[in-house]
């Protein structure tokens, strides 16, 4: 079971308190009606499916209830960082430095 750091509660807590909420930094278009069918399908269905560090969303559903972002390595399942919704996407190279 993963231990996850909630950036709002500033505590590291067991996975059972959290719910996964799919890939992060996929913004819903501001005016969906202006978006082409192709771009809308891309937004709805296509995800990066990376092997390695993935930007993803979690919700501290049985805690503060906030959605937040995380970078997790899909190979090791290790969290590289978590950060508040709305914060900029952290730079990967700074996160992977110093990892074994």
């Amino acid at each position: 079971m993963l231990l996850i750091h909630c950036p709002y509660c500033n505590e590291t807590l067991p996975e059972v308190e959290f719910a996964y909420a799919s890939e992060a930094h996929i913004a819903r278009p501001a005016k969906p009606s202006d978006v082409s069918d192709e771009d809308w399908a891309e937004f709805l269905f296509m995800r990066s499916n990376v092997k390695g560090p993935l930007y993803e969303r979690w919700r501290h559903i049985h805690g503060c209830g906030r959605f937040f972002n995380a970078v997790r390595d899909t190979v090791t399942d290790k969290f590289l960082t978590t950060y508040k919704a709305g914060d900029p996407r952290p730079d990967l190279s700074s996160l992977t430095e110093g990892l074994k």
């Binding site: 719910a19 919700r59 559903i61 209830g65 919704a85 709305g86």
Partner: peptide, 13 residues
């Protein structure tokens, strides 16, 4: 409720 919170917190804060 989870879906509403998702849109409220992340799309329309």
């Amino acid at each position: 409720l989870n879906m509403m919170e998702d849109y409220l917190q992340t799309e329309w804060p």
